[in-house]
Amino acid sequence: MGTGIDHRAVKPSAARRWTSFAALLALGVGYIAAYLFFSAHSQNFLVVQRNGRAMAFGETHPATSPITWQFGQNSPDNARLGSGWLAAPSYPGVRLLTQDGWIVFVTGRPDTDMLLRLDALVLTTQAVPRNTIEVSINGTSLGSWQRGGADAREPIEVRVPRSLVADGQWHVRVHVDHIGSIFGRDTGAARNGQDLLLLAIGLRRADSSNEPAR
């Protein structure tokens, strides 16, 4: 006695449903895998490109300690600046337009620890009276400094262990917590449209010298 239901007709439908679901699941998993792969292996191409240009310049123009570089409109030393900086006629030095800026150069193998000194003006606003600057070299953080108000122009001095730059290659990363408008508007972490008058710090000069023995 049959039920009147043809189970052969039911099974293909269920099989088809599960096949469709499996295909969709596979595609979804593929998206996740692709995203994880891309996240792990991608590097900001603009940063790589600009730092690469600075490094190429540095390799053909190695610096010898003590170094003194001046940055600004039409300065030849701007070639040592990697990503993040802008030289514009309306402001001395170069401005950091994003939260991260790089200075990339090559020296000989150092015999002693080095002292890197950044002569910068750190921007602050009413909402953010102190800005924090962190300096890393070759991926190692060497400290953070708070500046603003009375000490906004105080140079940032970074003691660099010679082991960190043993191969003579310097990738100096300057990170700031806060970006604002040169006219004092507080814009948080965002640039307001394409306002190029934003800056985090204005960098005029970088010096290096041998660190006295302690």
């Binding site: 891309f38 996240s39 292996h41 991608s42 590097q43 900001n44 191409f45 603009l46 940063v47 790589v48």
Partner: peptide, 9 residues
């Protein structure tokens, strides 16, 4: 480019 997120960059 080596940067899957080139658009975002």
């Amino acid at each position: 480019t080596g940067d899957a997120f080139a658009h975002e960059s």
